[in-house]
Design a protein around this nucleic acid. Structure first.
Length: 710
DNA sequence: CAGGGCGGTT
DNA sequence: AACCGCC
């Protein structure tokens, strides 16, 4: 039995009151929230078009395996849709240009840049996937409403159901102001990052999300409370309600519920029989557009994972190899993140013709401290030890004596611990790392917001941003009291609304990546035997499955015949620090199982023993080298050098934001040198961001001016 | 349902 | 520790 669901019910009042009183002139409930939802247009495709502007005017599809996960609007106009098979897509549109999108690195980076940008305006930002963000601007709006008369208000963007409404912005001053904030932020995203987006303005997350897609590319829409029933009723099925997924949808269908109205009307008691009272209430709330869930501010990701899918995998050696590949890239990301994972999870998907639910199975276990530390320092044997742990987990799920058929493997780090030494600490997320971003929002001289009879004022900006700064506990300030009836924790972490969160650079550290980092392609160092080296406590069960030749190689040590630049050459990055730790067989006996976790994951008997390599280097160094030679083959009529400026439409390129131009250029440049390994530090300092800082520093962005007190 | 990743709940 | 839900 669940006790929860406190929040959802008592406050039905706020939203519902407004809806209910549709006869009389509706006035905006002063207690309702103002929530924005931002949805980037065909996000992956936009990122690829920025990376290669020549793709702009062509039908472009982003391909993952045999699926087009998204496509640009040129392609959509030709009839393509999301999640269409490559075969179908090419049939419909033979001239379709395909870009592989399995490697999410660039999308992830850009995604966090967007979140980061929004957070720099106001910290109450919640991510939803890579391409959506919610903002709770209630308090911003409220302070504004108090100081400005609600005359001369306008709505920015569309109004849902506008035709059938007769409304004035002065009836909804708070949503109206919210709509201008949304417009300003969309413009900021466009001018700073080159991305177009849609936005929805409403009184809760559910409605904001639903309404944001009303006018599709690059537009925004307000949902007035009186249209709540309309937009809910417009949904084609229950599955369209955010919060009702596959499973819940099926269960509802089993109850005979198909439409939103079905769910609204079913007697609560009946629904409660299937879902319990609390969940039943929650579901019916959703069906009515009621959603009191708070915006939970985005922090760094709580887990990092890497996965790959395939048609068939049925050999243990393949599994081992795949896990290793996945771990290599995952560990590198983990290393860059700086935090230390304390839980490891292995997830698989079995091929099961019978299984209707594509279900995944997972096993997880703690990561021993000493291994976790090695991850954060980039030590080479962390890989081997993790592979070992992973294989143990694998054997918990799969009996390798019987045939098996996997279609997916996922490796995941979670329980990420910030270390108090600075790097990766939550305390440093908003500390100055790179003064890269200058939020010169509006290029336009007259901000729309300035029309709101606001006393624009000084632009003194606080240098310190303590929004999330806290100690290593990893918890944010718990805060203050909600002024709303809703149970929401009302956080604005901002002490003073008039004090914008650091125009300077609140760049969260988890987004920090070497600017010049050249990691375009999947690691796939697949051919390279040096990754197969195993730890002292290697699992004999695993080992014996290996081909003999590999076993031999393992036993003889891999780095013996290593060539040249294994030593920390100058070209290696700070992230690729190499160290040389002499480990002779004598000084370091290979049996260390005492350090394994106490559950069965720990190494078992003492017989397993592989010679430790005599010299260890950070595995990232190897990974970097190997990654340089990969290149995507596209079957289509794409020119092979799509990433080079030669192919780029200069006009289009010149229209890109300067920062993007620079990053692109450096990216392109990076592709040439085969062994060029960018340094984190070099990347940062080499990036020309400093110039940008000066750009419009004096002209504080309008939003910030807008909220200057007095 | 694909695909690669996330967060949250049980 | 495993599952569910979402993009």
């Amino acid at each position: 039995m669940d006790i929860d669901d406190e929040d959802d019910d008592w406050n039905i009042g706020t939203d519902m009151l407004v809806m209910g009183s549709s006869d009389t002139p509706v006035s905006e409930a002063s207690s309702s929230r103002v929530i924005l939802h931002f949805d980037l247009d065909c996000f992956y495709a936009q990122v690829e078009m920025i990376r290669n502007p020549a793709l702009r005017n062509k039908p472009l599809g982003i391909q993952q395996k045999y699926i087009i996960v998204t496509c640009n609007y040129v392609a959509r106009d030709l009839g393509l849709t999301k999640l269409m098979s490559v075969t179908d897509a090419l049939e419909k549109c033979p001239q379709l240009v395909l870009v592989k999108g399995e490697d999410l690195t660039h999308y992830r980076e850009m995604s966090y840049k967007v979140t980061e940008l929004l957070m720099s305006y106001y910290p109450l930002v919640q991510r939803l996937g890579f391409d959506e963000n919610f903002l709770d601007v209630t308090e911003m709006v409220d302070t504004k409403v108090k100081q400005a008369p609600s005359t001369d208000l306008t709505f920015s963007g569309h109004i849902y159901n506008e035709e059938s409404l007769a409304v004035y912005a002065s009836d909804y001053p708070r949503l109206a102001i919210g709509s201008h904030i949304a417009a300003e932020l969309r413009e900021a995203i466009k001018s700073n990052l080159g991305l177009t987006s849609c936005a929805g303005v409403a009184t809760n997350k559910l409605l904001a999300k639903l309404v944001s897609g009303t006018f599709k590319p690059n537009q925004q829409t307000i949902l007035l409370p009186e249209s709540t029933a309309d937009i809910m009723g417009s949904l084609s099925g229950l599955r369209k309600v955010p919060g009702i997924g596959h499973r819940t949808g099926e269960r509802l269908k089993a109850l005979g519920l198909i439409t939103v109205r079905d769910l609204q009307c079913i007697p609560p008691a009946e629904l409660a029989r299937e879902f319990g009272a609390a969940s039943a209430q929650h579901l019916q709330n959703l069906a009515q557009g009621i959603d009191n869930s708070p915006i939970t501010p985005a922090g760094p990701p709580q887990s990092l994972s890497d996965e790959d899918s395939f048609k068939k995998m049925s050999l243990t050696t393949e599994v081992l190899k795949k896990i290793e590949d996945l771990l290599i890239s995952l560990m590198e990301r983990m290393f860059k993140d700086g935090r230390q994972p304390s839980t490891f999870r292995l997830t698989i998907r079995r091929f099961l013709a019978t299984n209707r639910y594509f279900s995944r199975e997972s096993r997880q276990c703690p990561i021993p401290n000493h291994i976790g530390q090695k991850i954060t320092t980039g030590s080479c044997d962390a890989l081997a030890q993790l592979v070992n742990i992973a294989m143990k987990l694998f054997h918990k799920m799969i009996d390798t004596n019987s045939p098996f058929h996997l279609t997916l493997i996922n490796v995941c780090f979670s329980n990420l611990q910030s270390k108090s030494d600075g790097r990766g600490s939550i305390t440093s997320f908003f500390t100055q790392r790179s003064p890269k971003k200058v939020l010169s929002v509006s290029q336009q001289q007259n901000s729309t917001l300035e029309n709101l009879s606001v006393k624009g004022s000084s632009s003194s900006l606080p240098g310190d941003c303590t929004a999330f700064a806290n100690d290593s506990s990893g918890k944010r300030d718990s805060q203050s009291t909600s002024s709303k009836p809703s149970e929401q924790k009302k956080p604005p972490p901002l002490r003073h609304i008039g004090t914008p969160l650091s125009v300077k650079s609140p760049v969260p550290e988890w987004t920090q990546v070497p600017v010049n980092s050249n990691e375009h392609h999947r690691p796939s160092p697949s051919q390279d035997p040096e990754f197969l080296h195993l730890p002292p406590d290697v699992d004999p069960d695993v080992f014996k499955h290996l081909p003999e030749s590999i076993q031999k190689e393992l036993l003889s040590g891999f780095y013996a015949g290593e060539h040249e630049d294994r030593q920390g050459t100058s070209s290696q990055s700070a992230a690729v620090i190499s160290f040389h730790q002499k480990l002779t067989d004598q000084t370091e006996p290979p049996l260390q199982q005492s350090s394994m976790p106490t559950d069965s994951i720990g190494s078992g008997n003492g017989s397993e023993c592989v010679k430790q390599t005599t010299e260890q280097t950070f595995f990232f160094a190897h990974r970097e080298r190997l990654s340089t030679c990969t290149e995507q083959e596209e079957g289509n009529n794409r020119s092979p050098d799509t990433d080079y400026p030669s192919n780029v439409d200069p006009t289009v390129f010149s229209e890109l934001p300067p920062e993007l131009q620079r990053e692109l250029l450096s990216e392109w440049r990076q592709q040439k040198p085969v062994l060029k390994i960018p340094s984190k530090k070099v990347g940062k300092t080499a990036s020309t961001k400093d110039k940008k800082v000066a750009t419009k520093a004096g002209q504080a962005n309008n939003l910030l001016n807008y909220f200057k007190p007095d």
